[in-house]
Design a protein around this nucleic acid. Sequence first.
DNA 1: CGGGATCCCTTAGGATACTG
DNA 2: CAGTATCCTAAGGGATCCCG
Lengths: 213, 213
Amino acid sequence: MAGRDYGQYSGIAQALDLVGERWAMLIVRDLLVGPRRYSELAAGLPRIPTNVLATRLKELQAAGIIRRAPRSRVLVYELTDYGRELEPILLALGAWGFKTLDDPREEQIITPDSMTIDLRTAFRPHVAAALPATAYAARFDTAELLIAVDGPRLEVTRGDGPVDLAFAAGPDFRRLLRGEFAPEEAVASGVVHVLRGRLELLERFARTFRLAA
Amino acid sequence: MAGRDYGQYSGIAQALDLVGERWAMLIVRDLLVGPRRYSELAAGLPRIPTNVLATRLKELQAAGIIRRAPRSRVLVYELTDYGRELEPILLALGAWGFKTLDDPREEQIITPDSMTIDLRTAFRPHVAAALPATAYAARFDTAELLIAVDGPRLEVTRGDGPVDLAFAAGPDFRRLLRGEFAPEEAVASGVVHVLRGRLELLERFARTFRLAA
DNA sequence: CGGGATCCCTTAGGATACTG
DNA sequence: CAGTATCCTAAGGGATCCCG
């Protein structure tokens, strides 16, 4: 099933033989957020053909990176320990890629899972540790997330709950994460709409989450 | 030229749009060792079709990851600063892949550049810093390398020079890097042949370079 | 309805030959 | 030496269908 390989006895070539095929790392990315059903993965990766998704899931299982969750009533895929070891690597890769993210093009989407990982990438635990615990409700494009920061711990969920600050970010939220403009400026320019809560908390958010340019 | 992309506004998807196509990361891997000419890249990646190599080189240039070296008499490709930022990521990916490297199959080759990167991955600078400077000449498969360790610094070249220990490693050298067997055992089992120098230095090598299993 | 399998078409990738 | 050009195969993309 795997078929073609690079034919090199090297750590990187081996890694690429395992997760280098098209879509594979994005499947791992979404599974880093949590176990997912087949249809959830398909929904989070709208452009993946169903046969490719099925093929990748088989390959990733054969490679010991994911498994069908045992003793779960519904069929969900989850990362194995070996697969979860990719987390720091994928976060670093995301930080690297984020640097050259241009303005979103028309067809580019933001999914809850992809945004969750981007927030994990941007999270600065040492900064957050010195700040009061804060809960945010944020909407990026169509992705609505509940972001709970408690000391150096971050939890991003799709659930609902009481928050200190609720805001909706336009496509330029990226510049906020890069620290390119101050919260007041972000609101004034219409990049961010504060729905509930005090504006000062937006500055706390911008200090907690930061990605270099 | 790039054509298809993932259509997601996410750091990881962007990274994969830039270096996720087949062979791209292996080109970057070899360029991490040093600037390379077209024919050198082709030689280090024997299975890459020449048209694919040409295409990737153009895409990587367009993405700002590599460039044709300016003010160089011969035409060589080299990494840009942005491209070099991939080094820690690729080393981590290589360490991850190395864990599941099985015995080498017949068709799997080891190139000088790939082995150089694997050695960088395995290098433990803090361990080496406490050991005397040592130069090794090592042959892995057909790749002959000069490995100079001086305190926390590592230099791997294809050149020649005076060494403290010269050895040739069979396909099972991987187990040596994993610390799976002691140097004496490695020699006794025929996995490693010491050509020149004292056997004890092989233990120093095994302590300096280590990859988990 | 979730979890795929099947079909068809397009295009990237593999192999080889050839050229400025 | 540094690539194009060509041809062929197989993987990916897209829609639909099927089965438990």
